[in-house]
């Protein structure tokens, strides 16, 4: 009997120990919740609430940097940033679950329709440039430039290019190894739009990864490899891979901060955006965050490896937000229009 009681007690003890273990965890969790509401007395520091941001993983580092810096301005405002992809983010945005959506491509007509159906408006703001970079192996001696037509021949749907010699006869008769982002990526959408003329149209027999580091590793490890990825990934891996200048017909241009910013790196330089819900923009913490975003973007964008827009474009974006200009400037043929002019539409 006494033996049995001991066992019972010890079992109870174990349960108690476990329960208190988890209780402790919960307690610890409750602990560090203090906000650092101190000193500065300007309007933003009085703000509180949550600004939820989600969307493109390409734009994520920029929004993260702004959210991080915003803490020093408005310490009581929480700004969680997600990275569920441009499309995935728009689904949440349309559901009213987020205030701001990061996007590495303009909003699609179908997404605009669903937003309208949900009774939501949006303000489209460009925040930075990304230059999609075409990369080859470091010891690739033959590729010095690729024209848009050649890129199209390699990447178009049902492409029959299997060897380098099929791209240019003088190139080696070696099998070409293709690496690129998967179809959920905004980089994929933009590249296929610019090169194949239709967002989403691409050959599918290539090694696809949503993680650009995998593309770097793939191309760096294959002498006959070629791939495309975001500019920041090329910059960080300059010594592991070689970038290929792209010739749109007017001369070869390699991606650089300069050529992306002034628009000469065409057609693979693309603006990336934030979309702000008009309902959310009425909230002071969201308004303050977006204003801060456009204010700090030139500095922070460069810090995280992207290229800042021309100063005029940020000015136009600020006006656009201040005046609450809704709708997208995309949808028609916008080729060759400078970004600040493009976004001037509807701005007084």
């Amino acid at each position: 009997m006494s033996l049995h009681t001991t066992r019972l007690l010890s079992s109870d003890f174990k349960l108690l120990a476990l329960v208190s273990f988890f209780a402790l965890l919960t307690f610890i969790g409750c602990g560090g919740g203090e906000t650092t509401g101190n000193a500065s007395t300007n309007a933003a520091s009085e703000l509180s609430g949550t600004v939820s941001v989600d969307g493109s993983s390409t734009v994520f580092p920029i929004s993260e940097a702004v959210a991080e810096e915003f803490r020093s301005v408005a310490p009581r405002v929480r700004v969680p940033v997600g990275a569920s992809g441009t499309g995935g983010g728009f689904k949440k945005f349309i559901n009213g679950e987020t205030d701001i959506n990061d996007a590495s491509r303009p909003i699609k007509a179908s997404e605009q329709d669903r937003l309208a159906a949900a009774g939501l408006g949006f303000i489209e703001l460009p925040v930075a440039f990304d230059g999609i970079s075409v990369i080859v192996h470091r010891e690739n001696t033959w590729v010095d430039v690729l024209s848009v037509e050649e890129l199209n021949a390699i990447w178009k749907p049902e492409s029959t290019v299997m060897r380098w010699s099929q791209v240019r006869a003088s190139w080696p008769n070696e099998e070409i190894a293709l690496f690129g982002p998967g179809p959920d990526s905004g980089t994929f959408d933009y590249f296929t739009e610019a090169i194949n003329g239709d967002g989403g149209a691409s050959r599918s027999d290539y090694t696809a990864s949503e993680d650009d580091n995998v593309i770097v590793t793939g191309v760096a490890g294959d002498r006959h490899g070629i791939g495309y990825l975001g500019y920041a990934y090329y910059v960080e891996n300059k010594d592991a891979i070689k970038v290929v200048p792209v010739d749109p017909g007017s001369g070869a241009v390699a991606p650089s901060a300069q050529s992306i910013n002034d628009g000469t790196y065409a057609p693979l330089a693309r603006p990336v955006f934030i979309y702000v819900s008009t309902q959310s923009a009425a909230r002071p913490e969201v308004k303050s965050f977006v204003e801060y975003y456009l204010d700090q973007a030139p500095k922070l964008v460069a810090e995280v490896g992207y290229v800042a827009l021309p100063a005029a474009a940020y000015d136009v974006a600020k006006k656009r937000f201040a005046q609450g200009v809704t709708g997208s400037v995309y949808g028609g043929d916008r080729a060759g229009v400078a970004i600040d002019e493009l976004f001037s539409q509807g701005v007084n």
Partner: peptide, 26 residues
Amino acid sequence: GAYSYVAFVPTGPMDDFTALPIQIYN
């Protein structure tokens, strides 16, 4: 919908959050 960048700790069950594996992947 766990977030990837969260600069606060949850203070209640209704708060936004992130988790170790998400931070690592990011």
